[in-house]
Design a protein around this nucleic acid. Structure first.
Length: 593
RNA sequence: CGGGGUGUGGCGCAGUCCGGUAGCGCAACUGCUUUGGGAGCAGUGGGACGGAGGUUCAAAUCCUCUCACCCCGACCA
């Protein structure tokens, strides 16, 4: 087992048919000393430096061999859990005829994010950003009876969304690999069961990927129950903020988190309305300072326009921020626009800051906090004046009290009342109850047991595969490079012979390589003729969990040196015992918890 | 799309304000030495400055247009 049968290691495959080991000298793993200027966040920098990915265009990336190995591991974990929970894998076309999208109505709804192309006959197609249309089309053709349900199909495939702003490498690409799954059930009860199965599968996936994550309510609708959960990997660089309860299990996307009972000190009741001079107090902080009152006692009036361009006055406590997503939901999905200072002055007759709900001609919505405030400081509807003791119901009428404020850290948890924590996260997965939307639009029905025609109840479930990999990198790194969880590492072991000119060192390393691969261990064998420092630096940068060094020094001490990438613990192992020990360590790591 | 910024050998950057045809580090190649944390010395090759147009005796540098990329906001896996 020496240098004369180098190609042998390439015949050793893992159960998935993947080559177990690579010789670095003939591999393709270009590493960079410096991070390219284009990269901003750690995971992006390190994935490029370590030779996992390379950029082709904005939001479009190539996977190099070592990156592909890790990507495949994420895919395999996903595939395994999907299969286990009864989903069946399919592979749908990336290019889809426009007709289907016109049928579902999304040809018009989707906007420029949908990449539209034409074929040589000038026919319209789209490059699939998601596959509800295609999968529903298959189901409506093939599934006739309730006996064929439930059904759960998934695929792992490249998607394209012409994002307004791609960023952070794999984190938000335009072209990206997604696992998308769709469930089909006869009724709501079945759909709930499918949803729960996928929810559990997702927990397993992210747990097996070694990620610190949270399943977060993404849509806690008033109808009761939640219809959507996002799976968030916790990371400071995450694009989403999450409200977290350290006590109970409550976790919600900040945009959707309910802020029912944040502290508020009610104002006095029964006091007369008192007009006071407040020059140059257009903003809450200035007014609070000038009047020497807490910001919380000020009624902030914001003027919006709704879908019909009608003005809508929204009141919130002065120390709070408005949550535009909640306001949008309250407007049935219409994106409200804030009136400009000029527009506000024109409609309300006073400059911004002095707008008042008192005797206002517009519709008035208010956050529940205003209801609890009872009375406070409000604009006087006259430049440089405010009212003290403006009382809700007595002095101004609110059409509707809603939950409209952004949750803040230390607000009481809506479930248990404990102070909430706010963290940032990366959305790696989303499970969603679709209901009848697509089955209705495309006419996907089955004959039910009683002979009636019944619309299929759908659910959809997505995982960003590349994003999961990037999130793992974001969560696992140190100043020297990546620190992969064993399950996602491109190789489990870096085997470094330090003096390849020394026949003893080389022979010992080759033998270790042979034994390790025979035992099914994935090895990157650094047989390059470079200085030890280079090998160490690259091994650290690539983030392989275990590093096994063979050198003149270690041989003198009777073996090889094993170093753990994560905790940097070093042990010297007997040459003969090393492979067994490594296999033991790997098994211990990968053992189901 | 709005706002901000950057494009100069493979990578990271200086030079641009105050025009005079390009420089540094790393990488690559050759040789000698070195060999447990990205080696040292000597030497070699490689860019005409994102693109187009203009001003000028002369443009990386000034002007106009354009393209690409990155960052901040609304969308999403």
């Amino acid at each position: 087992m020496m240098g004369d049968n180098h190609s042998d290691i390439y015949t050793r495959l893992d159960p998935h048919g993947e080559v177990l080991a690579q010789r670095y000298s003939t591999y393709f793993a270009p590493t960079l000393k410096e991070a390219p200027a284009e990269a901003e966040i750690v995971s992006h920098k390190l994935l490029i430096r370590a030779g996992f990915i390379r950029r082709l265009a904005a939001g479009i990336y190539s996977y190099l061999p070592i990156g592909l190995r890790s990507l495949r591991k994420v895919e395999r974990i996903i595939r395994g859990e999907m299969n286990r929970f009864g989903a069946r894998e399919v592979l749908l076309p990336a290019v889809q005829p426009a007709e289907l999208w016109k049928e579902s109505g999304r040809w018009d709804q989707f906007g420029p994010e949908l990449l539209r192309i034409k074929d040589r006959h000038d026919r319209d197609y789209v490059v699939g950003p998601t596959h509800e249309e295609v999968i529903t089309d298959i189901i409506r053709r093939e599934v006739r009876s309730f006996r064929d349900l439930p059904l759960n199909l998934f695929q792992i495939q490249t998607k394209f969304r012409d994002e307004i702003r791609p960023r952070f490498g794999l984190m938000r690409g335009r072209e990206f690999i997604m696992k998308d799954g769709y469930s089909f059930d006869l009724d709501e009860v079945g759909a709930e069961r499918s949803y729960q199965a996928m929810f559990n599968a997702y927990q397993n996936v992210f747990r097996r990927c070694g990620l610190k994550f949270a399943a977060v309510e993404a849509n806690s609708g008033p109808i009761g129950g939640s219809y959507s959960h996002e799976f968030m990997v916790l990371a400071d660089s995450g694009e989403d903020a999450i409200a977290f309860c350290p006590q109970c299990q409550y976790a919600a996307n900040l945009e959707k988190a309910t802020a029912p009972a944040y502290p508020i000190t009610p104002g006095p009741i029964g006091q007369p309305l008192d007009k006071v001079y407040t020059p140059n107090c257009r903003h809450v902080p200035e007014l609070a300072r000038y009047l020497n009152v807490p910001e919380a006692s000020i009624v902030k009036s914001l003027l919006f326009f709704d879908a019909q361009k009608n003005p809508l006055l929204v009141l919130i406590p002065g120390h709070r921020e408005i949550n535009l997503v909640k306001l949008r939901d309250a407007l049935d999905g219409f994106e409200p626009t804030l009136a400009s200072p000029e527009e506000a002055e024109k409609i309300m007759g006073v400059p911004m800051g002095y707008v008042t709900p008192i005797k206002a001609q517009t519709r008035i919505w208010a956050d529940q906090g205003i209801e609890r405030l009872k009375s406070g400081v409000a604009g006087a509807g006259e430049k440089d004046y405010h009212y003290l003791n403006a009382e809700v119901d007595r002095d101004f009428q609110v059409n509707q009290f809603l939950d409209l404020c952004l949750v803040e850290a230390n607000d009481p948890c809506p479930k248990c009342g404990q102070p909430l924590d706010i963290k940032r996260g990366i959305e790696v997965g989303h499970v969603f109850k679709l209901g009848l939307k697509y089955s209705k639009a495309l006419g996907a029905t089955v004959t039910a047991a009683d002979g009636s025609e019944s619309l299929i109840v759908m659910g959809c479930y997505g995982i960003g595969v590349g994003r999961t990999l990037a999130a793992a990198a974001e969560q696992n790194h140190d100043p020297d490079g990546l620190v992969w969880p064993l399950a996602l590492a491109p190789f489990q072991v870096a085997l470094l012979p330090l003096q390849i000119q020394n026949p003893n060192v080389l022979a010992a390393a080759e033998e270790l390589l042979d034994k390790l691969t025979a035992a099914g261990v994935e090895v990157l064998y650094d047989d390059r003729d470079v200085r030890p420092g280079v090998k160490f630096k690259d091994a650290d940068l690539l983030g392989l969990p275990l590093r096994l060094t063979v050198s003149e020094k270690t041989l003198e001490k009777g073996g090889a040196e094993l170093k753990n990438r994560a905790d940097r613990v070093v042990v010297t192992l007997d040459l003969a015992a090393a492979p067994t020990e490594i296999v033991r360590l790997i098994k211990a790591f990968l053992a189901p918890s």
